[in-house]
Design a protein around this nucleic acid. Sequence first.
RNA 1: GCCGGAGUGGCGGAAUAGGCAGACGCACAGGACUUAAAAUCCUGCGGUCCUUACAGACCGUACCGGUUCGACCCCGGUCUCCGGCACCA
Length: 826
Amino acid sequence: MNERYNHKEIEAKWQKYWEENNCFETVEDDSKEKYYVLEMFPYPSGKLHMGHVRNYSIGDIVARFKKMDGYNVLHPMGWDSFGLPAENAAIKHGIHPAKWTWENIAEMREQLKELGLSYDWNREVATCHEDYYKWMQWIFIQFYKRGLAYKKENPVNWCPDCQTVLANEQVVDGCCERCKAVVGKKNLSQWYLKITDYADRLLDNLDTLEGWPNKVKMMQKNWIGRSYGAEVDFGIKDDDRKLRIFTTRCDTLFGVTYMVMSPEHPYVNSLVEGTEYEAAVKEYQEKVQKMTDIERTSTANEKTGVFIGRYAVNPLNGKEVPIFISDYVLMGYGTGAIMAVPAHDQRDFDFAKTFGLEIIPVVDPQNPEIDLYDLKEAFVAEGTMINSGEFNGMNNRDAIEKVADYLKEKGIGEKTVNYRLRDWLISRQRYWGTPIPMIYCEECGWVPEKEENLPVLLPTDVEFTGKGESPLTTSATFGDTVCPCCGKPARREMDTMDTFLDSSWYFLRYADPKNAEAPFDPAKAAYWFGKNGVDQYIGGVEHAILHLMYARFFQMALYDMGLASCEEPFENLLTQGMVNKDGKKMSKSIGNVVSPEEIIEKYGADTARLFILFAAPPERELDWSDTGVEGSYRFLSRVYRLVYEFVEKYGSVPETFEAKTAADKSLNYVLNSTIKKVSEDVGGRFSFNTAISSIMELVNEMYRYKELEDLNVGLLGKAVKELIIILSPFTPHICEEMWEHIGQTGSLTTMAWPEFDEDALVKDEVLIVVQVNGKLKDKMMVANNASQEDLEKIVMENEKIQALLEGKTVVKVISVPNRLLNIVVK
RNA sequence: GCCGGAGUGGCGGAAUAGGCAGACGCACAGGACUUAAAAUCCUGCGGUCCUUACAGACCGUACCGGUUCGACCCCGGUCUCCGGCACCA
């Protein structure tokens, strides 16, 4: 070991050692309790950024700690390697997506290794590898067989730049999540997964996920958007059909003054055909169809619509009301038609004001300040029913139930549940994704490829133009095949799968990554998942809805098929905050990007890991600070010097010691309380910043102690040894080096986490805070576990306290053992 | 609009079950070592007031109020910021 800390030499040396000695290989072992720690696998964009460093550092501390703490730890890594950037590179630079991707993977794998992360690289998976996507296709076919995958023509979100459809979840503020282009609509026949079948389970299970941040659970709840209500059939004047609507406000049925249908509602055309209203209706429909979601929602306040010349009949009172079409009613939610109650719904109120329609109040707020017959806005709160026949006088909340029961009894409606969540549209008109293993036969319709023929390989004779349909259509060899059912010539599906499917089960594949017979062996998965799934999942909060809901859906579906051992994939979830610089997100355009490469080069991986964990709690945003990094490097150098100096002076670590002096006891106390704190902070509440600060305090204490004349070498040696161990999950390279230097053999990766000595934590004297009327007045050292009587006696003898109590009456004395004494006076 | 968070020194943050507010680090200031610099080590570092000094007093966790012997922490209200959903009937 050099006198000075040389991070480059040390890190290269120990990375080589770990690799050559397979230090991180994991096998199933029933004799040990398992611990599965997983970080969200990266898209291989080419280079790591600080967000990756943060994500993987957190995971690595946990993995290394749990391993030392006696668990059989699974800590894998892989690549979410299908996706658009690879294809864009092909279009732009003429590199094949496969080549581009595999080169990026190789580069990023090296960078991960340079961070000293304890992955079992034998379990590496890449979703673009045929060994992986073969099983992706197999799973898709099982979904299809169970009715969870279906094809349907629908207006879909279409990104004009990416030239592909997007799932609802991938449209953010009306724009493509990836390229930010304004998303339009297109009618296409596409594959869907029936995630709505799982809406209730996805929602209700959230309450069982105690180890998830509330924030993420709320986001998923909002996204699923369950609302209880009823469907009600209205009559249509001069028509045999019924107009079915969905409402959550059955209680307001008597206040309906008009109806609104979505412009896309299937009845609209037949209702206006051949009438004087037809032209205006057609014109409005066309206008709406051309609108993007942004346009459709930006007109939130100004209501537009067209009267279609027809009337609906209220099933409760027989009242005839006009029917409109308007873009504020969406075909994709409920039944695509609503009853309008302007007195008690703000949107209906705005529409009614615009079109001069009748407003009938049916819920009385019983508030003299509100004039029910001249409302300024809709009244939406609780009240008493009026103008509602037999329901008058009832509380309207109770009436919701009563009216629904009445409708059911009369056969004009029923209670239903609606979800904001839609089925998952998974077809993508792209090349670099898993081919959908379906075949279209004129005779048999859509048929899945035979399982023995999987994988359906991506063809290589493909042109990348970036335009039009799926690039797979340009392949001469891909499309033509035979029907797996009847053997006649047939055509393959040309679209590929949304890459979010690939990342919805990779965590299961890690349990058995090389299996050629199945996606994974259920027994191996059961070992690593147990009853509750991945013990700790770590990743960015940006995946709160998309990835984390899709993965839960897959896990549930695979559980239902008997393949997975538990219903929920991730027992505990940590969403780490972003890494910013100068208060802003790091971005190339602002020019505030700090690259992990330059930090590793200048300070080393240990410093980078230490800083990123020390600077902020993991779930919070972290502002990158160059001087803060220097501080972390300074700390490591300080530890290094301490160890170097110790060995220079005393040789290797003595085995025994006895704490005699007060200084000995004090150091021994700090040492053991630090071990206790770090164990709790790392193993329990993931408070890495406070764990590190307590290690810093220990080091400060050791610096003071080593200058003493009557120091105890055995004690200092023990502190040196245990300091190295507890620091090692954070900064493994430097610790291995120091470990070797103090004469220890073997790698720290096989060391047991130290236990603290309870006896050392018992102090002879403790500091007591003395308060008068709750205000701090003095502090004093008293014997440990002194009784309240003794304490009171000592405190009352104190001159300062006596002066404060002069002329006052002591009302009572409150004492907290070993902590405080509060004297209440008048 | 609905739902969820957060607000503590110059800065990042700490206070884990209601009991010393500001641990640890950064920045800054002063000192030691050095021909000098770097590195290192030591000291100080919320505000106001008071004191020659030692020391001491008061205020202070966004704001207002409440509960309590005691509140950064619990309760009610207000403000600001961040995040999610949003013409979802």
